[in-house]
Design a protein around this nucleic acid. Structure first.
Lengths: 181, 181
DNA sequence: ACTGCTACGTTTAGACCTAAACATATCTGG
DNA sequence: CCAGATATGTTTAGGTCTAAACGTAGCAGT
């Protein structure tokens, strides 16, 4: 069943995950390949989305890391201010990376850092007028483009996929220890 | 339907994608958020898998980039040799990155570079004894761990997910231009 | 009020990647 | 046979991230 339609030429569907699993079974029978057809497409899709987003953002004059930072602040609503720690929790990167992102964005005049008034030794990061304008300008472009990329799924398929991803994520989280390492 | 079970405390399920979409709708009604619940979980899962894999590999004394390189050569079968170009095609990184990966692996004695005998100005990369031993030692650990991470899905759910991811990837590929930019 | 503990943010060193410039080697068509 | 086009790999410059070391700011207990 793998030999029909032998690849007479290049790779129309370049190296689908099933072929990787089959190759391992051929080379090392018994290799635990059950996960490959789930994990590999997820990685590839993540990269396809990330690369496409980079392209869209380059045209808008902003990069993905900055979009992520400005988005999370914008989304939190007025007064468009979050502490460094809150930002780190809502994002999948380390505190050090947030520090650097904020430093770059501040250098570019997109956010402002102010000593936190509330208790702890926090630092509040808030949007400047420029930062607010930039995120307003970018978010529709990025999300609109991504909506177009997933349009091939029917509403039903989309819902099934969302539910399955949710269940998978719950399991993975539980087994890896839910907090970021 | 979003307000029931208000988050009285921290974030048991930290910032699920649905909340992000809801936040955008609250802040900017009309924002095209249809893709968020699909794209965001895919990114998060990719990162969860990548981080977990890094952890497993650190214990095995190898990094993800090297695993990727040795795997693709090992999987190709005897004589465990591929040209730089073939490796780049089977991997999602640029030719420059492959060049650097091969240089590092060669420095560590895991692969060997030889001028290609067949026609073009190719460079053949082949596994050394050490490289072969290292990949044999690592692959079961990595794939076994990943199989354990996806075990919560039933066979039926797993198949549905695979099919949906395949369909999504096909569409995204077509709309972004199938070859890597 | 001291002393030690914990929370929080920043800095630094190192790894890896991409994009673009290079450097060659191989073909192609007069 | 030669000139340009094409295919391959490598190098370089710049950017971002992580992990770990730091440096302090509040807090708790006595």
């Amino acid at each position: 069943m793998a030999d029909s339609t032998a690849a007479s030429e290049g790779l129309r569907t370049p190296y689908p995950a099933a072929e990787i699993a089959a190759a391992w079974q051929r080379e090392r029978p018994g290799t635990p390949t059950e996960s490959i057809e789930v994990v590999t497409p997820i990685w590839w899709l993540a990269k396809l989305f990330a690369d496409d987003r980079s392209r869209v953002l380059r045209e808008a004059g902003i990069d993905a890391a900055t979009l992520d930072l400005l988005s999370v602040i914008r989304r939190s609503g007025p007064p468009y201010t979050l502490s460094t720690r809150e930002i780190a929790q809502r994002t999948l990167v380390t505190a050090g990376a947030i520090s650097q992102r904020v430093a770059r964005a501040e250098r570019d005049g997109l956010v402002r850092r102010t000593p936190g008034t509330t208790g702890r030794r926090t630092v509040e990061v808030s949007l400047t007028t420029d930062g607010h304008a930039l995120i307003e300008r970018s978010v529709d472009a990025v999300l609109g483009r991504e909506a177009a990329l997933v349009i091939d799924l029917t509403a039903h398929e989309r819902n099934s996929l969302i539910k399955l991803l949710e269940k998978l994520m719950t399991g993975v989280r539980r087994r890896t220890g839910t907090s970021q390492p």
